[in-house]
């Protein structure tokens, strides 16, 4: 019972600490006032609070990145060189360079243009992640676009569908159905990639509001004990990944609902 109330206090103090809400000093802090002692409760709550940030990063960049990905994929599949060229270069650049370096470059560009807001991790890293996932997803969607059976399009033309209707009713659904398994993988990878934002990717950490791995590392360094903090963050990620896969699976079933026995 005592443990429970302790944990509730921790939830109150550190539940939204990653967004700067709650107790100022982290558990075990000696330099600022109000630091609670390090215990399992505090660790779990604080790392979970950081996890919210990872989820937010993933959700924002995936949901917005999808539209850029679709545009890039369609541009890349055109025949005009001035349309395919830029799309190709952009996709190749983002897919060929490491994300960490993209974070650094992104930060430096935002800094040199004086875009104050984007110099914070919350906004700047989201932008970089947005472009990164868009380019990876664009390649997947492009592959799917090319794999749409020609006979389907022929049938659509035979029905005298306008180009827009043809895309909406034939190309796009088939494309999504073909791309979805690979897109699921990309979503998982992106979600895992959100963990490097706060580990020294150029973006400064303000007021110790970081993500799950940032806090896990904090605890591991504080206690010299990696055997509690890292498994907690790993467990959170296993759980979140499982939920993500489940969600993607639901969409996949929906996309394939007209096919028998195929998922």
């Amino acid at each position: 019972m005592e443990m429970l109330s302790e944990c509730l206090t921790a939830l109150d103090q550190y539940g939204l600490r990653s967004f700067g809400i709650g107790e100022r000093g982290l558990p075990g802090a000696t330099n600022t006032r109000g630091g609670a002692p390090i215990n399992l409760c505090n660790m779990t709550v604080l790392i979970g609070s950081g996890m919210l940030r990872n989820i937010l990063f993933g959700l924002i960049s995936l949901s917005t990145g999808f539209f850029l990905a679709l545009s890039l994929a369609l541009l890349k599949s055109r025949s005009e060189w001035y349309l395919t060229g830029p799309a190709r270069v952009m996709i190749y650049t983002f897919r060929g360079t490491p994300l960490l370096i993209q974070f650094f470059i992104g930060y430096l560009i935002f800094a040199s243009f004086g875009l104050g807001v984007f110099r914070t991790a919350a906004y700047g890293a989201s932008v970089v992640l947005f472009f990164n996932t868009a380019c990876y997803a664009a390649e997947i969607l492009y592959g799917a676009y090319r794999a749409v059976p020609n006979s389907d399009l022929e049938a659509a033309r035979a029905y005298a569908l306008s180009p827009f209707d043809r895309f909406r009713d034939v190309t796009f659904p088939t494309m999504m159905r073909l791309a979805w398994p690979a897109y699921t993988n990309e979503a998982i990878f992106l979600f895992h990639a959100t963990t490097i934002v706060f580990l020294g990717a150029g973006f400064p950490v303000r007021r110790q509001s970081g993500d799950a791995l940032y806090y896990a590392q904090y605890f591991a360094e504080r206690t010299f004990n990696p055997f509690i903090a890292y498994p907690i963050v790993a467990l959170y990620f296993v759980l979140a990944t499982a939920i993500l896969i489940l969600m993607m699976r639901t969409v996949q079933v929906y996309l394939n609902r007209h096919l028998r026995n195929a998922r």
Partner: peptide, 16 residues
């Protein structure tokens, strides 16, 4: 590695 980000292992394994 499908469930856990690789960077966690990179931090965890050397320390362990």
């Amino acid at each position: 590695v499908r469930g856990i980000p690789d960077i966690i292992f990179f931090l965890f394994v050397p320390l362990t």
